[in-house]
Each structure stands twice: as structure tokens, then as C-alpha cells.
Design a protein around this nucleic acid. Structure first.
Lengths: 200, 200
DNA sequence: GTAACTTACGGACAGGTTGTATGGAAAGCA
DNA sequence: TGCTTTCCATACAACCTGTCCGTAAGTTAC
């Protein structure tokens, strides 16, 4: 019976139902264009439940954002930790490829790259993202600097700049009319950029 | 007398008053957080005038965006056209410096980099920006490719990726607690990136 | 110059949105 | 079982956007 559910289970079910309902709506129409009533109805509850579980619409968006980000991180992290540093160019290229492949999903580029910075503000977006994308790039750079493959320099700013390049490349590729061609163009541009970092 | 103003003058005055009023409001609080009534009152008119002059709030934002962008372009273009291609590294570094200096203004990074992609959608943002930032970077790259300073490759994707890096660097620098240090870190990171493009 | 017409603007209205307050149902605890 | 706390639905208040209509200012025709 449903009656035997514990409070924690009830809350968790409602929260995940709301996040699951909001996720495709935010992906397709953006944060501002979709209302809380539509989300609640899609989740099979009312706005009352939404405002009980989340401080507001923005906090619900944060939950969606973190879900997408953590999935993205898990996906990229798996490919990165298995690389070896003896061929830094190949390693960097593999990372670029993994990123572009992941960003082919509309969820990532719409929620993570488009809506989040405006809905949350750039500062909070970056703060949340530090543990994700930027942190990952920092780890890669740090590994390669330790291995002597690229010049030692402050990691964080370089990681930020690279993340900016990666994000823009992903958007360029994802929104183009001829997506395969654009993806390849973006890939080559990123290759050119990261190859320049590797010491001869 | 006011009575002798022509219709075109009246419209132009109202439009520029609205844009001038909206610009600092959007800069400080963002597109979504400031209402049309507040803008109209700050401009000394009513919402009726706003909706007569602009199709909607979004179109007013576009007018603000284009004003900021065109000022930015004029500022950067002046420094770029006077450079010479004999020293490509110095030329690229000068461009980077000019960009970072321009983005120190809150108007640029808030309106152009944060609000615009979400308020207008990434596609329209990019479309409007093609004539501005991306176009400028394309011009620089094209010049250097013609001069043989960097390898010939598709210009547009590389320009996009670089613009992404430039934008993220500007945001990183502008929002840091210790801005001078962060600006220098961002500058060095961008130098490392663009230096890697220059042929030996 | 004035009459007919177009453009610019102010005020009021309808529709929809977020966030809150209130009441009841379900679960935890004694 | 009785009492408290948590969870959720409904109703409500305060917005905000976009539209409608009336009026005033400017333009054109006669």
C-alpha cells in the first residue's frame, strides 16, 4: 500500500518527481518560459508541494542543474581517469571529444550553458560549476603539468579560459544547421587551441 | 518650444530616453528583475510610450544590447586596425588586453555576456553578435592567416572558440575578489592560448 | 487656416505568474 | 490511542506583461 511510505520516502518521491518533470520542460523552453503550475501538474502534484519541497522556482532549477551536471561529470570523469599521460596530445584530444559528445544532448547545453548563468547569476553558476567542469579541467591540466607535458602556470585561470572555449564550441556545434560538420569544425578548433599548450 | 518638435524627433527622444533609462537598470539587476513600469518611470514616460516605441520588453533589451555592443566594437576596432602584422604575438596580446580592459565595465559583462544569451536565446544572441565580437575576431584571424603568421584553417569555428575563451576570461577577471590579480591571471592564460596558435 | 488624418502617448484592463497563508491528511512518537 | 510534526492542496494577495481605447500632438490636403 501507499500508506506505508515513510515521510522521507514521500518527500524524496515528490522531489524527484518535480525534478524529473521540470528537467525536460526547462530543457525545451527555458527557465523563465515555464511556470511552476505546469511543472507541478506534470509531476502529478500541486504548486503547494513544490513550494514545500523547494524554497522557490530557482531552487528547483538548481536541483535540475545539479542533476544534469553530476551526470555529465560522471560521464566525463570515467573517460578521463583511464587516460595515460605519456601522450598528452592524445589525452587532450580525447577529453575534447568526450566533452563535445556529452554536449550533443540538449539538456546539457540548454540547462548548463544557457539558462544557468542567467537564472542563477554568473557567480553562483560558477560556484556550483567549480566542482564540476572547471574542477575536471583543472585536474587534467594539473596532471599534465606534473608530467611535464605542458608548462607549469596557474591552473585555475587557464582552466576557466579553456572551459569558456569548450562551452562556446559545444554551443557552436549543437546549434548549427549542419551539425556533423560544425562539430568537426569545433573539434579542430579546440585541437588547435590545446595543441598549442603542449610543450614541443 | 516643445510644440515645434517633429514627430521623428519626439520618437527619437522617447526611444533614447527609454534605452538610457533601461541600460543601467538592466546592468545592475538583470533583464528579468526589472519591470517595464520602472523603466518607463525612470525615462519620464509611461508604459504606453514604451509599448508604442518597442514591440515589447525584449525588443527594448535588444536596443540596449546593440548600443553597448556598438560602443564596444568601436572601442576595440580602433585599437585593432592600427596594429601591424609583422609581430603577430604582440598584435594578439594587444587585442587580448583591449578586450579585458573593455570588459572591466559592468555593462559589457552583464548585458552582453550574461543577460543577452538567456533573454534573447543563444541563437539570436549569436546572430546579433556575429557583426560584433565574433566578426572582429574573425577579421584578426583572417589577417594573420593571410600574413602567414598562423596556420590557415576555417576561421569561424576558431573565432567562436576564442570568443568563448575571451568571454570567460573577462567574467573570471571582472568578478574576482582581487580583480587586478585575476585580470593578470586571465591575461596570461589567454596569452598562452593565442601564442600556441602562432607558427614558429 | 482649417479639416481630415496619422502618429505618439497616458491610463485602465485582462490574463497569467510567483510566493504565501490556511486547513486537512498522512506519518511519527508517546 | 492521542498529540505533534511533516507533507501537501486550495485559496489568496501582490505583482508584471501586453493590449485596448481615448486623447493630444503633429502632418497633410484643401
Amino acid at each position: 500500500m501507499e500508506s506505508k511510505r515513510t515521510q522521507a520516502e514521500r518527500s524524496a518521491a515528490t522531489r524527484s518527481a518535480l525534478v524529473a518533470a521540470a528537467r525536460p520542460l526547462f530543457t525545451e523552453r527555458g527557465f523563465a518560459a515555464v511556470g511552476t503550475d505546469e511543472i507541478a501538474r506534470a509531476a502529478g502534484v500541486t504548486r503547494g508541494a513544490l513550494y514545500h519541497q523547494f524554497a522557490g522556482k530557482e531552487e528547483l532549477f538548481v536541483a535540475v542543474f545539479e542533476q544534469v551536471e553530476s551526470e555529465l561529470l560522471a560521464r566525463l570523469g570515467a573517460g578521463i581517469t583511464t587516460a595515460d599521460t605519456s601522450d598528452p596530445v592524445a589525452m587532450l584530444h580525447a577529453d575534447v571529444d568526450g566533452w563535445l559528445a556529452a554536449c550533443a544532448e540538449p539538456e546539457v547545453h540548454r540547462i548548463v550553458l544557457i539558462e544557468a548563468p542567467a537564472a542563477l547569476g554568473w557567480e553562483r553558476w560558477r560556484e556550483l560549476g567549480r566542482g564540476y567542469g572547471v574542477g575536471l579541467v583543472e585536474a587534467v591540466l594539473d596532471t599534465l603539468m606534473d608530467a611535464g607535458a605542458i608548462a607549469r602556470r596557474p591552473v585555475r585561470p587557464l582552466a576557466h579560459v579553456l572551459v569558456g572555449a569548450l562551452e562556446e564550441a559545444a554551443l557552436y556545434a549543437a546549434r548549427a544547421a549542419d551539425r556533423p560538420t560544425a562539430t568537426d569544425e569545433a573539434r579542430q578548433a579546440l585541437y588547435a587551441l590545446v595543441d598549442g599548450l603542449v610543450l614541443p
